[in-house]
Design a protein around this nucleic acid. Structure first.
Length: 262
DNA sequence: ATGACTACGCCACGTAGA
């Protein structure tokens, strides 16, 4: 089963690019972030025409996450549990049953948190504490689960081309990295790092100053796997080449391959 | 360098992203 995560930075602005990429990558499941669209305005029809079922959790103008799947989408949970007053659409999870075993998938868009310090940074850290509680519940199910999306955290210096430029940024602050580690060390596996080591592997490049041409990027999109999912991992890679296309997202997809049987 | 891009809301620049 091929599962991809992709922060598309606006579904309406990116529809053609998304359809082209779906046709080329052919993921069984695509986890999308930053729809910047309500559920009503989400252009489901051209996506369904490519053979995908669609579950969205949208919001007007900002945020918004979705799950696309060739197989039926079941047991959908919209919104990160733990705060009924949180209006921001940053979390959707569901079970997808492929030809083999069922897999639980989460599409998440972790808050940016800038400027730090400040209320947005406080929201980021509170959101990560809430995510930690949810991950605990997910781990207890012992279902193979993929938690993928835009984590908005540069986990290690090697995840940035110029880490010294990010020292005061909410993506690289010690508090953000510690909160990311607290989640990871509950027993999750960073799928990409199973297959690739070292610097130079990025999922985001700023639109400004020719960042992509200089590979001035950061790795902030991750697929984290529960132990039962990590046991199924066959491959993980970044689809970086589509960043050089016309009107691209500032993020690129991260793709993993899970064994269907065995 | 209070800069620079890009998308969105809803037609004028302000907010947000990272």
């Amino acid at each position: 089963m091929r599962i991809a995560t992709f922060n598309i930075n606006g579904i309406k602005a990116r529809l053609e690019a998304l359809l082209q990429w779906l046709g080329e990558c052919k993921p069984d499941v695509a986890l999308l972030q930053e729809l910047k669209s309500t559920d009503e305005a989400f252009p489901a029809e051209p996506i369904e025409a490519l053979g995908y079922n669609v579950a969205t959790h949208g919001q007007k103008g900002f945020n918004g996450v979705a799950i696309l799947s060739r197989h039926p989408i079941e047991d959908v949970v919209r919104g990160l549990p733990g705060d009924d007053g949180d209006e921001q659409a940053r979390w959707i999870e569901a079970t997808v049953c492929g030809d083999g075993r069922p897999v639980r998938v989460v599409s998440l868009y972790l808050p940016n948190g800038n400027p730090a310090p400040g209320p947005k940074f406080d929201y980021k850290l509170a959101w990560m504490a809430r995510m930690r509680d949810r991950v605990g519940d997910i781990l207890a199910t012992e279902e193979p689960t993929v938690l993928a999306g835009d984590y908005n955290v540069i986990a290690q210096p090697e995840d940035a081309e110029f880490p010294d430029r990010w020292l005061d940024d909410a993506l690289f602050r010690p508090e953000s990295r510690a909160a990311f580690r607290r989640i990871l060390y509950m027993g999750l596996t960073d799928a990409f790092r199973v297959r690739h080591r070292g610097k130079g592997h990025y999922t985001f490049w700023d639109y400004q100053r020719g960042a992509y041409q200089e590979n001035n990027g950061i790795r902030i999109d991750y697929a984290l796997l529960t132990p039962q999912a990590a046991d199924l991992l066959e491959d993980a890679y970044i689809d970086a080449h589509i960043r050089s296309r016309e009107r691209p997202s500032d993020h690129v997809p991260v793709v993993i391959e899970l064994r269907d049987r065995g």
